[in-house]
Design a protein around this nucleic acid. Sequence first.
DNA 1: GCCCAACAACTGCCTGAGCAACTATAACCG
DNA 2: CGGTTATAGTTGCTCAGGCAGTTGTTGGGC
Lengths: 168, 168
Amino acid sequence: MTNVFDDPRITAVGLLYEAHAGLSARFSAQLEEHGLSSVEFEVITRLARSPGNQLRMTDLAAQTSLSTSGVTRVVDRMERDGLLTRRACPNDRRSSYAVVTAAGLQRLDETLPGHLRIIEQWFTGQLDPEALAALLDGLRRVRDAVHPGATAGSTDQGHELVEDTGAA
Amino acid sequence: MTNVFDDPRITAVGLLYEAHAGLSARFSAQLEEHGLSSVEFEVITRLARSPGNQLRMTDLAAQTSLSTSGVTRVVDRMERDGLLTRRACPNDRRSSYAVVTAAGLQRLDETLPGHLRIIEQWFTGQLDPEALAALLDGLRRVRDAVHPGATAGSTDQGHELVEDTGAA
DNA sequence: GCCCAACAACTGCCTGAGCAACTATAACCG
DNA sequence: CGGTTATAGTTGCTCAGGCAGTTGTTGGGC
């Protein structure tokens, strides 16, 4: 055929997309067993890794793929399901925190081991250490270039602005 | 903090996801300039690279991230916009082809160069050739492992079942 | 202190996509 | 041939999520 679509750049993107889509599908399947969607898993993970298991709604939005209105709604659902609570922010009455409940933490505990197993099985375990390192190195450079401003931090008290390569 | 979330597996997935998300955002921005959504671009690309610039609805669904009902609707919209037409399948009256129109091909021609430039600028051009090769190699292995049955082919006449690493 | 701009969260409205039900056709089997 | 089963595509219903507009709160300028 010798057409434009064999261009190596197209192929490269195709690989990245297909790897991503394939992994996403595996993750979704496992998460569903624990009653979580991908978005909910990301939300609960971001919260659980934050000091006090909480984050202001805006910061949560900035750390996820969601708009603030999207966050409002996910948190609504997860609050209804008992995984999260809202807590008023003491020094700014406009803000509120989303906080993981005990039930939420437990759910995460139940989910994480399987999640890690899947990552290992389908991703990191597919490559020997140097190949994996090379892959991650490449991804990191692309990520840094394209960085859509990830890592919007928890902006209240002492917090470190560490490099963030967050969860699913 | 020394918690679970610093696990290298989590970090690896984070990198893949953030690279993907970042690239997607760049693509969307450029495609929007040409009046295409990501899905529409994928559809028109898949069709344009197929023999006769056409594909049966089902095969199109299999090649994209869409369900068959999703395909029905995208094709509806794109037909309304003059980028595609439906054509009856001569030997199976249940099936119909989605065919790219001249206007559709032209739109694609206008869009592709910029698209390739963006890939180069933010992805392939970020790495020297060996590093890129290593990255793609790793992605290919993950993709092959996780292969969600991509490459559902054009199943009518003479068609090659080539490895497919399709477009965005 | 008062006013106005900036900001946090929420809500109404709309679009896109999936599932399941439905229709029409095809294929298979007696 | 007639009937049963599978397949292609479309449509109704539902839900998730974005944008833009609203409300309540804060802070800065005077």
